[in-house]
Design a protein around this nucleic acid. Structure first.
Length: 499
RNA sequence: GGGCCCGUAGCUCAGCCCGGUAGAGCAGGCGGCUCUUAACCGCAAGAUCAGGGGUUCGAAUCCCCUCGGGCCCGCCA
């Protein structure tokens, strides 16, 4: 396909060629010794507006966002990761010919370096009075409109680099995510947990019910799948004697993308030997309390982050699963109803899952309809009906229940934890029940996992947290599309593959 | 999977109801301006109106199909 040459791109290519003809390399190799724009701003404190420049020369580098030329004076806005800085160009500082040449050949979007002296303009703007400019990379493609940026949600996802380069808010969101996951790891490390990595490619995806992505190994000459959960490999590590482990990694579910679901997302799972789900609940509460405080400290400019410590102040509310469901729905005796009765009730509130789904699936539909939307403040839901959860241990004192909790916030699940089932025979029975209730598509039987349990898994508790949703909740970001850098998109006709 | 909505210049948008041959701002070009910060003033340029088909003397506008996207519902224990 022939590349169409936009007049805007042609103009920029000609500028690059002009610079080359003058012996200026448009893509140089290095620019040592620069400081952040914030350091220049700090160096202007105490300077009088319109007064003399500070004596110490400073060097900055970044992307040109705007150029305002006033005849023999010009103002250039430069963005870097520390913020932004106004460059102040004057013909009497640079000389007639360099001044004219730079203004002729620089464009918004170019990456440039500048040397000069900090000063404050008459209008009070901290600036760098420029003595020389260095082109660091010529931008051949024009950046989006300087004020509105990139609005089209499709383009923001397909070309995230354009979204990022034109939007400090977008950069702040993704920076928030990185700082929070770093903090998450640091906190778990401090609690004595060991980070591990387990395979993404597995023979059978298990540990949850979801459609897997399927692929194939030429070497092994067998079909493989992408994991849908981290649970079963991590429990094998408990069998192996690692007593506190966690993994942060991508899991893959071959399902639709919406504002709270992505086919590829980041899961945290934590396993803790010789502890139970009550211990895990205390840990989750402390974790969220800590992260909420950190997000406020790390992101002073993000209003939603500032509210996090108050929102996630312990103790979190607790409700009993069955009691909450019965109170919200007016139903009674939900634990004693059989599958057909639960199915009819779920059908009545609009659930459209297959008739042969396990009873627990219908209970979950009812819970999702009546209770979840009401859970606005952080709330632990305790002691799920056994039918809903094949991998959890039965409750030590409440019949028909398992030791499981979920944490909800604004109607969205933020954490899920159990006292883990470690009786190999009971685990085998629960797997078989799931299999007989539904097709093998929906829950894979992992024989090697049963075998692992036969060697003895200590009494343990395990936790799963969707990291993307955790970031959304703490930083107040409503769509998962704004916390995942690169999402898969459909191919556009005529286009090559999109990363 | 169902419903509703959207796609116009590199970017942000108007025009569409009610058909008459495409308009602005930013960015880019030329000219002016030594304190602006969404700088300003003037001039010129820039568009396969997502793609295809249909109706019509005439389609960005009405109809159909396709592609891409958004929102809601369903599904994702």
């Amino acid at each position: 396909m022939a590349e169409e040459i936009s007049p805007l791109v042609r103009e920029r290519r000609e500028k690059a060629a002009r610079l080359r003809a003058q012996g200026i390399e448009p893509y140089p190799w290095e620019f040592p010794g620069r400081v952040g724009s914030d350091e220049v701003v700090r160096a202007t404190t105490g300077l009088a507006p319109g007064g003399a420049a500070a004596p110490t020369p400073m060097r900055v580098a970044g992307r040109l966002r705007a150029v305002r030329v006033h005849g023999k004076t010009a103002f250039l806005d430069l963005d870097d990761s520390a913020g932004s800085l106004q460059l102040f160009l004057r013909v009497d500082e640079l000389g007639e010919s360099p001044y004219a040449r730079w203004l002729a050949d620089l464009d918004p979007g170019d990456l440039v370096g500048a040397d000069g002296a900090p000063l404050v303009t008459r209008r009070g703007e901290p600036s760098l009075l420029v003595r020389s400019i260095t082109l660091l990379a010529k931008a051949l493609a024009p950046p989006p409109e300087k004020f509105h940026g990139l609005k089209d949600p499709e383009e923001r996802i397909r070309r995230r680099y354009v979204d990022l380069l034109s939007s400090p808010e977008s950069r702040a969101r993704f920076t928030a995510r990185s700082l929070l996951t770093r903090e998450l790891r640091r906190w778990l490390d401090g609690e004595g947990f060991l980070e591990v990595e387990t395979p993404t490619l597995v023979p059978i995806a298990s540990g949850a019910a979801a459609q897997p992505f399927r692929t194939r190994s030429n070497y092994l000459d067998r079909d493989l799948q992408l994991r849908i959960a981290l649970e079963l490999p991590l429990k094998r590590l408990l069998v192996g004697g690692l007593e506190r482990v966690y993994e942060v990694g991508h899991v893959f579910r071959n399902e639709d993308l919406d504002s709270t679901h992505s086919p590829e997302f980041t899961m945290l799972e934590v396993y803790w030997a010789y502890h139970d789900y009550a211990d895990m609940r205390a840990l989750v509460e402390r974790l969220y309390e800590h992260l909420a405080q950190r997000v406020a400290a790390l992101l002073p400019d993000l209003a939603a982050a500032q509210e996090a410590p108050e929102r996630f102040r312990p103790p979190f509310a607790t409700v009993d699963y069955v009691q909450a469901l019965e109170e919200a729905s007016g139903l009674t005796g939900v634990l004693d109803k059989d599958r057909d009765a639960l199915r009819d009730l779920a059908r009545a509130v609009g659930a459209r899952i297959p008739d042969d789904s396990p009873a627990g699936a219908f209970l979950d539909k009812l819970f999702g309809h009546y209770v979840e939307p009401t859970l606005e403040r952080p709330t632990f839901v305790l002691d799920f009906p056994a039918a809903t959860t094949p991998l959890a241990k039965r409750h030590r004192s409440r019949t028909g229940r398992v030791e499981r909790f979920e944490l909800f916030f604004r109607g969205i699940e933020l954490a899920n934890a159990y006292s883990e089932l470690n009786d190999p025979d009971e685990q085998e029975r629960r797997f078989m029940e799931q299999l007989s209730a539904r097709g093998e598509d929906h829950f894979a039987y992992d024989a090697d996992f049963i075998e692992a349990l036969r060697f003895g898994m200590p009494p343990s508790t395990g936790l799963g947290i969707g990291v993307d949703r955790m970031v959304m909740a703490l930083a107040g970001i409503p769509s998962i599309k704004d916390v995942i850098l690169f999402l898969p998109t459909r191919e556009r006709s005529g286009d090559g593959p999109v990363p």
